[in-house]
């Protein structure tokens, strides 16, 4: 009872490829000119052509937020942006927010609160948080949770992300009630005390 499944060619016409053109992107305050065709996403332009790999690819379809960058101060998913139409706009990536030896307040708060584990969603979370602060709309824990929900974190660092964002949003004047750590000291055990 065999049947055939044929993947039909998606393009009936002969395949053609549009040549690359010079595209100038303003990233972190500097103009960069690269040779790309219109099919290059802003995310791939940053990662593969400009070696700015801080911006992450987690799904490539706008479903995770790892690729979040700021464009004219607003947070967007760079994976769904065609680079060529972002010429003339001010693009800011994680590398533009602060460097390893000169962290921005948000970056420092993420370290202090252990607001990440594997670190892969982290640049997107931080850019998103910066966008949230720029928007000036959110103040409460609930608002920040909702407006940070465009960034998935598979490690589950959400409570610490909330703490980090709230700290910077309120200049350290708000204590977030999202859980404590309690340590109960060691007690001798049966096995070791029997030794």
């Amino acid at each position: 009872m065999s049947q055939t499944f044929i993947q039909e060619p998606l393009d009936k016409a002969a395949p053609h490829v549009v040549p690359a053109q010079a595209v100038t992107l303003n990233v972190n305050g500097e103009d960069h000119t690269i040779q790309i065709a219109p099919w290059t996403s802003l995310l791939d332009a940053l990662r593969e052509y400009l070696n700015l790999t801080g911006t992450k690819k987690g799904c490539d379809h706008g479903q995770c937020g790892a690729c979040t960058v700021l464009v004219d101060g607003k947070r967007i998913n760079s994976c769904l942006a065609l680079a060529t139409v972002y010429q003339g706009k001010k693009i800011q990536t994680i590398e533009g927010l602060g460097a390893e030896d000169n962290l921005s307040p948000l970056q420092q708060a993420f370290v202090d609160h252990d607001a990440f584990q594997c670190g892969y969603c982290t640049p997107g979370q931080i850019c998103s948080a910066q966008g949230l602060i720029n928007e000036g709309r959110c103040k409460t824990e609930d608002e920040v949770r909702e407006h940070m929900s465009g960034n998935l974190c598979r490690c589950g660092a959400y409570t610490n992300i909330l703490s980090a964002v709230m700290e910077v949003l309120h200049d350290g004047n708000v204590v977030v009630d999202n859980g404590v750590l309690i340590t109960i000291p060691v007690a001798p055990t049966k096995a070791s005390s029997a030794e």
């Binding site: 706008g62 947070r75 967007i76 966008g131 407006h147 929900s149």
Partner: peptide, 9 residues
């Protein structure tokens, strides 16, 4: 609907 990032675009 969607997320802040998507709604911005």
């Amino acid at each position: 609907g969607a997320t802040p990032q998507l709604r911005n675009v």
